[in-house]
Amino acid sequence: DTLHVTQDGKHIELRGLSEEEIKLVEELLRRGRKVEEALKIIEELRK
């Protein structure tokens, strides 16, 4: 699936995420994380 995010005035499209990963990214962003940080966390969880 694809998640569309706008952060720091930039539109970012995150592709290839599972539904659970999207929920996790959304939660991390709500808690003030940056998109880059959220993606690093997803990458770690995929290992």
Rank of each mutant, 00 (worst) to 15 (best):
G32R: 05
L28M: 12
R31V: 09
D1W: 01
R33N: 08
L3T: 08
K34I: 07
E20D: 13
Q7S: 10
L39W: 11
G32L: 04
G16P: 03
E37Q: 10
V5Y: 01
K47W: 14
K34R: 14
V25K: 00
E44Y: 14
K47Q: 13
L45R: 07
S18Q: 06
I41F: 12
E44M: 11
L29D: 00
E27F: 15
A38H: 00
K47M: 15
L24Y: 09
G16N: 09
R46V: 03
I12P: 06
L3Y: 02
E27T: 15
V5H: 05
R30E: 07
E37C: 08
G9E: 07
H4V: 15
E19L: 14
L29N: 01
K40C: 10
E44I: 10
R15M: 11
T6Y: 10
K40N: 11
E37A: 09
G16K: 03
R30P: 00
E43N: 09
G16C: 06
T2V: 14
I42M: 05
L14D: 04
E26A: 14
I22F: 09
G9K: 02
I22H: 06
E44T: 10
I22C: 06
K40Y: 12
L39D: 00
H11K: 08
V35M: 06
E13H: 09
R46H: 04
E13N: 07
E21H: 02
E20A: 12
R15G: 10
L45S: 05
I12S: 03
E43A: 09
E19R: 13
G9I: 04
I22A: 12
L29W: 02
L17R: 00
E37K: 04
D1N: 14
D1Y: 02
G16Y: 07
V35T: 04
L24S: 04
K34H: 10
E26T: 15
L24F: 09
E20F: 13
E26D: 08
L45G: 07
G32M: 04
R33V: 14
H4S: 08
I41S: 05
E20M: 13
E26M: 15
R33F: 15
I12K: 04
T2D: 08
K10H: 12
L29S: 01
K10I: 15
R31I: 11
K34N: 11
V5L: 07
H4E: 10
K47I: 12
E36G: 08
E27M: 15
L14F: 05
T6K: 03
I42S: 00
L29V: 05
L17G: 01
I12R: 03
H11P: 10
K47G: 12
G16W: 06
K10G: 06
E44Q: 11
I41R: 08
R31G: 08
K47A: 14
Q7K: 03
I42W: 01
V25P: 00
T2A: 05
R46M: 04
E26H: 15
K47F: 14
L3S: 08
D1V: 05
E21K: 00
I12E: 08
V5C: 10
D1H: 15
E19A: 14
K10V: 15
E26K: 15
I42Y: 01
T2E: 07
K40V: 11
G16I: 02
E27H: 13
Q7E: 15
H4F: 03
H11C: 04
E37R: 04
T2W: 08
A38T: 07
R15D: 08
D8K: 01
V25G: 01
E36S: 12
G9V: 02
E44R: 09
E20C: 08
E21V: 02
E44D: 12
Q7V: 12
L29E: 00
E37W: 11
I22G: 08
R30H: 06
E36C: 12
H4R: 05
E26L: 15
L28F: 13
E26W: 15
H4C: 06
D8L: 02
K23M: 12
V25Y: 05
L17I: 03
E36I: 11
K34V: 07
D1C: 06
E37M: 08
T2M: 08
E36D: 11
R46G: 02
E13C: 06
T2Y: 10
V25T: 04
E19S: 14
R15P: 09
I22T: 09
R33Q: 10
V35H: 02
T6N: 10
R31K: 09
R15S: 12
E37I: 08
E27G: 11
I22N: 04
E13Q: 09
T2F: 09
V35A: 06
R46A: 04
G16E: 09
R30D: 04
A38M: 10
E13A: 08
H4D: 08
E21G: 01
L3E: 06
I12Q: 05
E20R: 10
L14Y: 05
Q7M: 04
L28R: 00
L28S: 03
Q7C: 05
R31M: 13
K34W: 09
A38W: 02
K23E: 11
L28D: 00
E44G: 08
R46P: 01
A38N: 00
E13W: 12
